[in-house]
C-alpha cells in the first residue's frame, strides 16, 4: 500500500479518536448514564449517534454517485443466530464496563488502568470467537 494512503488512514484514525474524546464517549460514566434509562438518564450518546449516523449515511449516498470508488455493499446480511446472540453478549459487556471497542482503545493510549484490563480481555474474547466460529459472520 502506498505511503500516502497510509497517511490518510492515520488521519482517519486521528479524526475518529478525536471524535470519540470530544463527544465524551471515552468517559464510561457518560455511556452508562445513557444506558441507565431508569436512573439519571444522559442523552449525550443519542446526539453522538445522530451526528455520526447522519454524516455517514448522507456521505455514502453521495459517494455512491461516483464511479470507480470501491465501496462496501449496502445490503443487509441475514439476521442469523450469530448476529442475535453475539450482539446480546456484546450488550451485556458494554453495560457491565461502559466501554465499547473504540473508547476502550482510545483510553488505552492514555494508559488508563480500566483500559489496560479491558483491552487484553477484549482481544482474548475476539480470538475465542474467531477461533471457534470464524472471523466472518
Amino acid at each position: 500500500m502506498k505511503a500516502g494512503k497510509l497517511v490518510l488512514f492515520l488521519a482517519a484514525g486521528g479524526l475518529f479518536g478525536t471524535g470519540l474524546a470530544v463527544s465524551g464517549m471515552t468517559d464510561p460514566a457518560r455511556v452508562i448514564g445513557f444506558l441507565d434509562v431508569f436512573g439519571a438518564w444522559d442523552p449525550a450518546l443519542l446526539f453522538v449517534m445522530a451526528g455520526a449516523v447522519g454524516v455517514y449515511g448522507l456521505g455514502m449516498v453521495i459517494l455512491r454517485r461516483f464511479d470507480g470508488l470501491k465501496l462496501p455493499s449496502a445490503g443487509s446480511s441475514p439476521i442469523d443466530y450469530r448476529l442475535v446472540i453475539g450482539s446480546a453478549i456484546f450488550g451485556v459487556g458494554w453495560g457491565l464496563g461502559g466501554f465499547c471497542p473504540g473508547p476502550a482503545l482510545a483510553n488505552l493510549g492514555a494508559l488508563r488502568i480500566e483500559a489496560l484490563f479491558f483491552v487484553p480481555a477484549m482481544a482474548i474474547g475476539m480470538l475465542l470467537a474467531q477461533r471457534f466460529f470464524g472471523a466472518d459472520r
Binding site: 450469530r82 453478549i89 451485556v92 459487556g93 457491565l96 465499547c100 474474547g125 470467537a129
Partner: peptide, 11 residues
Amino acid sequence: AGLLVGFGTRL
C-alpha cells in the same frame, strides 16, 4: 466486560 465485548462483537 472486555471478554464479553470481544467475544460478542466478533460473533
